[in-house]
Amino acid sequence: MVPHGAPSYLPTPSGFKIPQSVLVVVYTPQRDVLLIERADAPGFWQSVTGSKDAADEPYELTAAREVAEETGLDALAPGHVLTDWGIENVYEIYPQWLHRYAPGTTRNTERVFGLCIPACRPVTLSPREHRAQTWLPWRAAADRCFSPSNAEAILLLSHLVVD
């Protein structure tokens, strides 16, 4: 586990991020969604994201680790349900973040997860990574995301049955 306040990735032996990451939509049974605002890009709201620490790190471990690092939530705690949605998005890496990857790397593969927690609650952000948090109804959360794949993942919550 990376100490609180550390970057969301650990450099590989080469010093570059691995172009395999997770997107974790944190939500409640009522379909309220947690969004966090990037510290390095004000106005860029997103779900939890992060890269693998090693090429052989299982995506589920990456998802649980990134949730802990970015929000302080324990994805595996009683009452929390972490689910691999079986979706992978391949996208062009935003130009402002290309320097984090090995030269010539321009695409990232992102595996999508959902984390259902019992209720909205404040989370503990790493100020180095994120500057604000908000809980929004799922449609409003999708509208606020800067990433199209993140918005599409949140819209999948429309298929959940709400008690």
Rank of each mutant, 00 (worst) to 15 (best):
Pro3Glu: 10
His4Gln: 14
His4Met: 14
His4Pro: 11
Pro7Gly: 08
Ser8Glu: 11
Thr12Ile: 04
Phe16Ile: 00
Phe16Tyr: 06
Ile18Met: 00
Val24Arg: 01
Val25Asn: 02
Thr28Asp: 05
Pro29Thr: 08
Pro29Asn: 11
Gln30Asp: 11
Asp32Glu: 13
Val33Trp: 08
Leu34Trp: 09
Leu35Val: 10
Ile36Glu: 03
Arg38Ile: 09
Ala39Asn: 05
Ala41Ile: 07
Gly43Lys: 07
Phe44Asp: 09
Gln46Leu: 14
Ser47Met: 15
Thr49Pro: 01
Gly50Arg: 12
Lys52His: 02
Ala54Lys: 10
Thr62Leu: 06
Thr62Trp: 08
Thr62Cys: 11
Ala64Met: 06
Arg65Phe: 02
Arg65Glu: 05
Ala68Pro: 05
Glu70Ser: 04
Leu73Tyr: 06
Leu73Ala: 08
Ala75Ser: 05
Ala75Asn: 02
Leu76Gln: 13
Ala77Leu: 07
Pro78Leu: 14
His80Ala: 15
Val81Glu: 14
Leu82Ala: 10
Thr83Ala: 12
Trp85Cys: 11
Gly86Phe: 09
Ile87Met: 11
Asn89Lys: 05
Val90Asp: 06
Tyr91Pro: 02
Tyr94Phe: 14
His99Glu: 01
Tyr101Leu: 00
Pro103Ala: 01
Glu110Ser: 12
Glu110Asn: 12
Arg111Pro: 02
Val112Leu: 11
Gly114Met: 06
Gly114Cys: 12
Gly114Glu: 08
Leu115Val: 04
Cys116Phe: 00
Ala119Met: 09
Pro122His: 07
Val123Glu: 01
Leu125His: 01
Pro127Cys: 08
Arg128Thr: 13
Glu129Cys: 09
His130Ser: 09
Ala132Tyr: 09
Gln133Tyr: 13
Thr134Val: 15
Trp135Ala: 00
Pro137Trp: 14
Trp138Arg: 11
Arg139Ser: 09
Ala142Ile: 07
Ala142Tyr: 07
Asp143Ile: 04
Cys145Asn: 05
Phe146Arg: 14
Asn150Ser: 15
Ala153Lys: 03
Leu156Ser: 10
Ser158His: 13
Leu160Tyr: 04
Asp163Tyr: 03
Asp163Ala: 14
